[in-house]
């Protein structure tokens, strides 16, 4: 028997596979496809202080081996997430979830983290300072070491739960931002968020997305994500959740070898709703194929 378990800051995971925020809603749509309790955890849809409609449509554009999205953090707001979405998740998911929080000011990050800290089925708070699709918030906090550190400090003060800061790859030096978050007290890091992209509709000769730019994700971004995780693993000591283009069990192993303690699956869920289930089922076979007995033992093994 191979051991596919892992852990994140003391949170034991039966396996490293976690659906990524924004690709899995609050689980409701996927529970009809399979029993979600097989998942290591679930990172919920990015939550903000106020409810948000998001950007105008079209919000989706196809790319070679990937897609752009400019959803713009559509969510019901932190109060509805706490009173409605998280309790509903308990009905079909009996493990701890990862609460993904975003904001447009330091105060909003604090507000939402302090509130969601009280939810008993939240095991980790993942702070999104890297959304490329909103103005005056999101990624603007994550492209600068000082503001990334400031968000980290502020949220650490209002929660006792482990805090993972979600980083953007749209920076010159991701390790510098990672180190700033670690020094500010982050318990872990999640990377990468989407890459900023754009596509033009050749019929209208204008950008496909109403928001013009969007976040690029899908299997095409895997090498960028692996490189970022590899670099950040060498720069910090705190655990990393690796994500970006992961679509197979082999990709999970590759990500863990680069330094990820757990791995999030994003766009793959949208193309194949069974993606996470299939990856979990394939992990033991892939491990045997590469002579791996325990996933925990290979974390950072590529260094």
């Amino acid at each position: 028997m191979v051991d596919i378990s892992t852990n994140l800051c003391g949170l034991q995971l039966s396996n490293p596979v976690i659906p990524a925020s924004g690709t899995f809603g609050f689980g409701e749509e996927f529970k009809n496809f399979y029993d979600l309790n097989i998942l290591g955890s679930i990172s919920i849809k990015g939550t903000t202080k106020e409810p948000r409609f998001g950007n105008e449509t079209p919000r989706i554009a196809e790319c070679t081996s990937g897609m752009l999205n400019s959803v713009g953090l559509q969510n019901p707001g932190v109060d509805a997430v706490i009173s409605d979405k998280l309790p509903k998740m308990k009905e079909f998911y009996n493990k701890q979830v990862i609460a993904n929080i975003s904001g447009f000011s330091f105060e909003e990050f604090e507000y939402s983290c302090e509130k969601i800290d009280k939810a008993d089925n939240v095991g980790i708070i993942e702070v999104n300072i890297s959304c490329p699709n909103v103005h005056g918030g999101g990624m603007s906090f994550g492209t600068n070491a000082e503001s990334a550190a400031e968000v980290t400090k502020r949220v650490k003060k209002v929660t006792t739960k482990p805090v993972f800061i979600k980083l953007t790859p749209n920076v010159t030096n991701i390790s510098e931002i990672a180190k700033a978050c670690e020094e500010a007290g982050a318990d872990g890091l999640s990377l990468i968020n989407t890459l900023l992209g754009l596509r033009v509709d050749l019929k209208t000769k204008k950008p496909v997305l109403a928001n013009k730019k969007g976040g690029f994700s899908g299997s095409a971004v895997l090498p960028v994500a692996l490189r970022c995780v590899y670099e950040v693993y060498e720069a910090v000591k705190i655990p990393i959740m690796g994500m970006g283009g992961v679509s197979t069990a082999d990709d999970v192993i590759e990500m863990m070898l680069c330094g990820a303690s757990a791995v999030q699956i994003g766009a793959a869920n949208l193309v194949n709703p069974y993606a996470c289930k299939e990856i979990i089922e394939n992990l033991p076979h892939a491990m045997k194929k590469y002579g791996i007995n325990s996933l925990k033992e290979i974390i950072g093994g590529a260094h």
């Binding site: 899995f24 409609f53 989706i60 999205n69 869920n269 709703p273």
Partner: peptide, 22 residues
């Protein structure tokens, strides 16, 4: 019709405003 990501309600790619909510 709308450009869709997943087609089953997960990605929020095709949301529109209606008088009965998003």
């Amino acid at each position: 019709e709308e450009r869709m990501g997943c087609g089953f309600g997960a990605c929020m790619g095709c949301t529109c405003k209606t008088k009965y909510g998003d």
